[in-house]
Write a protein that binds this DNA or RNA. Structure first.
Lengths: 232, 232
DNA sequence: GTTACGTTCAAGAAAGTTCTTGAATGTTGT
DNA sequence: ACAACATTCAAGAACTTTCTTGAACGTAAC
């Protein structure tokens, strides 16, 4: 009746789940998934104190969700493994199916704003090859600079109105942001439709596109990711 | 700059992750995934007190991981949704990739005992149609009774030696149990190979087989699942 | 060297989690 | 009604988590 390795394994799995068991850490993880980032910037984006952010990041590092490397004075954190996106996706999928509140929020907030099906990654890839589409990255400029879909233009939240005249109303627009639960691309699509554009959201966000191996670019030479030649 | 629904959603996701963040709850969840089961039986299987088990189950019920229904004097708990198996699978997948201890345990304990690839579900399904295989369910008798692969025979832990002469050495044996981290099928395969049988493990366990929609049976008429006609 | 900067550490208060114990609840069978 | 049973509730002790504060650490620039 050997005790077996199950107890040890389940203790590890539980530690991993526990690391995901805080809204602040989930938010930080979403930010880290956008690309390598320092503690201060993450703290600002998540609305937490720097010391608190540091502690959360270190717990996630201990648990294997993120890794850290030093770059000059700052420490850059990044997602430890692409499979973690699959885990958070599974988490939100189960939550949508079994938690009534989640389904309510999703319907009230998301479905009302975007009744149309999101564009799949493969679909967008096809259209990009044919040049039939305009892709907008609705994230803040620094996240765009750290990495974005090849060919996307950056229109951060609140700046859409100012850029409307730059857009061609004859071709369809696809907007994307951080991921499935990020509202920025929803608001962009909403604004665009109100002005008569044909606009839809991309399924998921930048991290999933990158993990799928589809083409990306980054600005700001060498600073964010040494070894990756920037262009665009 | 609307606050957005993200905070509310992430609070829910975190509550779900937190519910998975205890080794005992993960163990209970594995048991519940085998089929509907009462509190006392779950407590015994997990090695916990009844009151403590009840509290863990109620937290998982509040979080939407399990559901409960009354059946006479006892309350039967069951998995709330099949997608939860995908979530726990993602959890263990990430843990295997990012946590050194998990990989170590996996290699030392599992790979050493079973160097062969496990049999896939589709593969086993094929062979079952052709009658080329003997399927052994290595779980305790009550879990077997609550549901098992159609055509499987039950040889609980510790009883393998007594049943060796009932087995035909000319056909290959496939053993399965509760899931990927359950040692019972490993030990069965180990014992069988030591006696010259050709034996392999089924990929995953009974819950995944059931969720995949492949054929199952249950014994004990009506008691476990009303509406499902028992046979075998 | 000294200074500025980004991050981490250490200590402590407040809140939450986990498990135990014994009493309370609801259901079944006599 | 009553007793037997399965489960839940309530209270409390031990422990863990979370966040804040101010000091400490390592690196880069002057």
């Amino acid at each position: 009746m050997s005790n077996g390795p199950k107890h040890a394994l389940y203790a590890e799995f539980a530690a991993l789940a526990k690391a995901l068991g805080s809204p602040h850490r989930l938010g930080l993880l979403e930010q880290v998934a956008q690309g390598e980032c320092g503690v201060e910037a993450l703290a600002a984006r998540a609305g937490l104190s720097v010391a608190n952010t540091s502690q959360h990041l270190q717990q996630m590092k201990r648990t294997g969700l993120v890794t850290a490397r030093r770059n000059g004075k700052s420490i850059l954190y990044r997602l430890a493994d692409d499979s973690i996106l699959g885990l958070t996706a599974a988490l939100s999928h189960v939550a949508s199916r079994t938690m009534a509140e989640v389904d309510t929020i999703r319907r009230e907030y998301f479905d009302d704003r975007d009744a149309l099906e999101p564009v799949s990654r493969d679909d967008l890839m096809q259209r990009l090859r044919n040049g039939l589409v305009c892709v907008i990255d609705t994230r803040p400029a620094d996240e765009f600079a750290a990495g974005h879909l090849t060919g996307a233009i950056n229109i951060p939240p609140g700046e859409m109105e100012a850029h409307l005249e730059d857009l061609d109303p004859s071709i369809e627009i696809v907007a994307y942001c951080r991921g499935a639960w990020c509202v920025m691309s929803f608001e962009a699509v909403s604004t665009l439709r109100a002005h008569g554009f044909r606009a839809r959201r991309l399924q998921d966000g930048y991290p999933e596109w990158r993990v799928a191996g589809l083409p990306t670019r980054s600005t700001r030479a060498g600073q964010e990711r040494p070894g990756v030649r920037p262009s665009d």
